[in-house]
Structure formats: structure tokens, C-alpha cells
Simulated assay, not measured.
Amino acid sequence: MSKFSNTSDPRFRRWVKGSTSGGSDGCLFVASAEDGSGDVAIADSKAGPAAAVQVFNRREWAVFLAGAKAGEFDHI
């Protein structure tokens, strides 16, 4: 859990950030939808609590995570 909150989509209330972010205020936060849809959202804490969130469905998120774990984005 974190102290971050985002009000642009009420389905996402429990935001978490990666442990490697440390105490930085400029972090990306991730939350899963609490409506059972399986959607996952990403928000930028620098944009504030009313900032838009980027929402991915369950399959999109799984494909992204698999690519990240396989090193597909290491060159970026």
C-alpha cells in the first residue's frame, strides 16, 4: 500500500509502487480494479490525484509483464 490516491477512476483505490522507487515522490503506481474486471491501472504520482490513469485489461497486462520479464524492453 501507499499514500498515493487517484480520483480519476473510482475502481482503483489501492495503489502500490515498486520497492525500488525508494522515497521518491515521482513514481509510477499500479492498482488492480476492485470491480472484478481484472483491469490494471498505472498512474504517475507527479500528475496528482486527479490525473488520468492508463488502464490495461488482464491480457494486455499479462503480455506486458511477460515481455518485461523476458528482457524485451531492456534496451529502452
Rank of each mutant, 00 (worst) to 15 (best):
P49Q: 10
E60S: 14
A31Q: 00
N6I: 15
A52Q: 14
G48Y: 02
R14M: 04
P49Y: 00
I42H: 07
V30N: 01
S19W: 01
S37G: 10
G36C: 11
G23C: 09
A33Y: 03
A31E: 04
G26W: 15
S8F: 08
R58Q: 13
N57S: 09
A31H: 02
L28R: 06
F73A: 08
W61S: 03
N57L: 09
K17A: 07
L28S: 09
R13V: 06
A66N: 06
V55S: 05
M1G: 10
D9I: 11
A31F: 02
S45P: 13
A68S: 14
F4E: 11
G26N: 15
A33C: 04
L28K: 06
A43R: 08
H75C: 03
S24L: 01
A51G: 10
S21V: 06
F73D: 00
K17M: 12
R11A: 05
S19K: 13
C27P: 06
D44L: 00
A68N: 12
G18H: 08
S37H: 04
T20K: 15
A51T: 09
W61D: 01
E72S: 03
E72K: 00
A47P: 06
C27H: 05
A31L: 04
V30L: 07
G71C: 01
S45L: 09
D35N: 13
K69M: 02
S24H: 00
A52P: 15
K3G: 15
N6T: 12
D44R: 07
D9T: 07
S19H: 14
P10G: 08
M1S: 11
V55A: 05
S45K: 12
G26E: 12
K46E: 11
V40P: 03
W61T: 05
A68L: 14
I42G: 08
S21D: 09
A47T: 14
W61I: 02
G22M: 05
D39E: 10
S5K: 15
V16F: 07
N6M: 14
H75K: 02
A68K: 14
W15S: 11
V63K: 11
F73H: 02
P49I: 04
R14G: 01
I76K: 00
E34F: 00
V63F: 07
T20E: 13
G26T: 12
A70T: 01
D25H: 13
V30C: 02
K69I: 01
V40N: 02
S19G: 14
L65D: 12
D74W: 03
F56K: 13
A52C: 12
S32A: 07
W15D: 06
F4P: 12
P10Q: 10
E60R: 11
A70K: 07
A33F: 03
S2W: 08
V30F: 04
S32V: 03
D44G: 04
A51F: 14
R58W: 08
C27I: 10
I42S: 05
E34P: 00
S21T: 07
F56L: 15
V63R: 07
